[in-house]
Design a binder for these strands. Structure first.
Lengths: 119, 119
DNA sequence: CTGTATCCTCTTGGATACTG
DNA sequence: CAGTATCCAAGAGGATACAG
């Protein structure tokens, strides 16, 4: 009966800080895609470029640097010739995968809902 | 034994489309915060403004409109005086909460990791 | 209270060309 | 192959003032 206790308008203090912290990581252009394409294993620079078609070299390398600086992925120079560089998720970066999966799941529902209302 | 089959460099086709779809929803400035602050129940415009301190009226109303257009939240005009407007998550919008929770969880780990390496 | 309209700044990302 | 440098356009977001 007295279940209408939701009159309390003083917001319960959430944690927008941690939210913002992580959003900053995955908000850059193509950042989520980079992580997404690395989730199955390491990839090289040019592979990522073709994985994510319309990404410019500048932005990709920018994003990779940022993600590396944040400890989300690692950069390894392979002593081959021609030289190649491998990017891989760190354990920390792997922690992002479940979050992205949750996002993908919602994405599907959003698309479905969007399609439904355009009938 | 033959577990090194990860030599396959032809990327397994992921679903960046749904990813992008949902990222578009939560990428706008303050969008995640709006959803986050609505997860415990409906809030009014001015309440959201004080919930999320440095948000300008323009951007907040912009974001609310977008989120409403995407079916993530509903806008209800209360016939009170002075008139007030309540925003609430739709079922679709509530689907975003788990994703945000996953993001918050990662945010905590990112902050912890960041703090640790600054010792 | 709940927005909208303008103006303005600053960041972001793309294209292109060039280096190691 | 793996980037970096430069230039550029577009858009997002903040401040302020005003309207219903």
């Amino acid at each position: 009966m007295g279940l209408k206790v939701r009159k309390n308008r003083s917001a319960p203090p959430p944690e927008p800080c941690a939210l913002t912290e992580c959003m900053a990581v995955i908000s850059g252009a193509w950042a989520p895609n980079v992580i997404w394409h690395l989730r199955a294993g390491p990839r090289r620079f040019s592979e990522l470029r073709t994985d994510i078609p319309p990404v410019s070299a500048k932005v990709l390398s920018q994003r990779l640097k940022e993600l590396e600086a944040r400890g989300v992925l690692s950069r390894t120079i392979q002593p081959t010739s021609p030289p190649s560089v491998e990017y891989a998720l760190t354990p920390l970066g792997e922690g992002l995968v479940p979050a992205l999966e949750a996002i993908v799941a919602v994405g599907h529902r959003l698309k479905a809902a969007h399609a439904a209302e355009r009938v």
